[in-house]
Design a protein around this nucleic acid. Structure first.
Length: 118
RNA sequence: GGAGUUGGCCAGGCAAUCGCGCCAGACAGUCUUGGAUUGUCUGGGGAGGAAAGUCCGGGCUCCAUAGGACAGAGUGCCAGGUAACGCCUGGGGGGCGUGAGCCUACGGCUAGUGCCACAGAAAAUAUACCGCCUGCCGAUUCGUCGACAGGUAAGGGUGAAAUGGUGCGGUAAGAGCGCACCGCGUGUCUGGUAACAGGCACGGCAGGGUAAACCCCACUCGGAGCAAGACCAAAUAGGGGAACAUAAUGCGUGGUCCGCGCUGUUCCCGGGUAGGUUGCUUGAGGUAUGCGGCGACGUAUGACCCAGAUGAAUGAUUGCCCCGGCUCUUUUUGAGCUACGACAGAACCCGGCUUAUCGGCCAACUCCCACU
């Protein structure tokens, strides 16, 4: 069984790692999320989240969105090696749990194909 | 039964599946021992009443500091509680409510300065618009009228506010001019720790409001904050020391050479950024019982350990029940449908305040109606 966000191995930890993804990436976005992806040298994928206070005002809602992202990331079972950064979109705070989950599923699929091409 | 006041409590519940970070233990792997680290399993615990705003007060940490004064900021009836407070408790004054109760920035403008629109004669070193009254002169239709000199502030009018209020006496008309009661001030006595309350005597009245206006008085206050502070410590640049090379080249000191310094290589040292570790959760801790106190609270004893994340754990899905909403049904009953189920997420820790908030429960008390 594959684990979810494995402690620090599966997360982007500092500004340097985030910037690497921002500089060179493939992106996919809709009204709920914008996801950046960039291949890495490791054997497993890594996840970073950038949910700004400006986009999502309430701390409770920010936490809810993060949990859904982690949950979805875990269940999508990606065996490829790439770093992902998820950012909140315009309607990120408004979407229901189900809407957000469906949106993420779609993005994972799209990004896998894009990464494979490049 | 209805309406209301105050205080306290809860913050949907249960089950299944998947999942997260923390702690303890066991086993296994890796590294040189201590130990560190990774994985698996078992067990334990994992958001709030406001975790929020960051408005006060402390603890803790670092920096500064002989002592004092000024400046600045804050507080402002009295007493108590507390580590401390701008908080809390009890009491007093004032205001609101039929009442239970609620509100209260509640020291001083009989120190100084400033401000007070409009209206009004006058808004403060005052003095008088219409009036009222007396004297005298003139006119007269004998009712009064006008001018001048004076006495007044009772009445009118303005205003939020006009040099105490009401009544009686008094007077030419009036006036604390005199008296009674009320208000105010001073003195004194009684009760109270005190704020204050009450009594008695005296004074005829100090002289509008405003101090969240400057200000005066009394009291309090050093600064910065866990991104505090402590430790470990890449890369890059630079500093100090030692050894070697001065073989080759160059520069400075020199007329020239040696030497010395710059320079090259290696090693060591200290400071220190990214990053990491720590601070980091046992504490002015809650809790039960007894005792003291009207109470805030204090105290003794017993058992208890109750989140510690760091690009930031505490979640998701499904089912049932509860609650809410909508529809059907004649109302009740019943049936069906429905959903981010109030406000909202710890970030060093406490004590408060303020703000947000679906709904529900408990206790005490008040008013109204009905019944006995």
């Amino acid at each position: 069984m594959q684990r979810a966000c494995l402690s620090k191995h599966d997360k982007l930890l500092n500004a340097a790692e985030f910037n690497r993804v921002f500089d060179k990436s493939v992106r996919s976005s809709d009204q709920y999320f914008t996801i950046l992806a960039s291949p890495n040298d490791l054997e497993h994928p890594r996840l970073g989240m950038a949910i700004s206070k400006r986009r999502v005002k309430l701390a409770v809602v920010r936490n809810r969105i993060k949990r859904i992202i982690r949950e979805s990331f875990r269940l999508s079972q990606q065996n490829d090696s790439a770093d992902y950064v998820v950012m909140a979109g315009k309607l990120g705070a408004r979407g229901t749990n189900q809407q957000l989950r469906e949106s993420l599923e779609k993005h994972w699929g799209l990004l896998k194909k894009k990464c494979a091409k490049s």
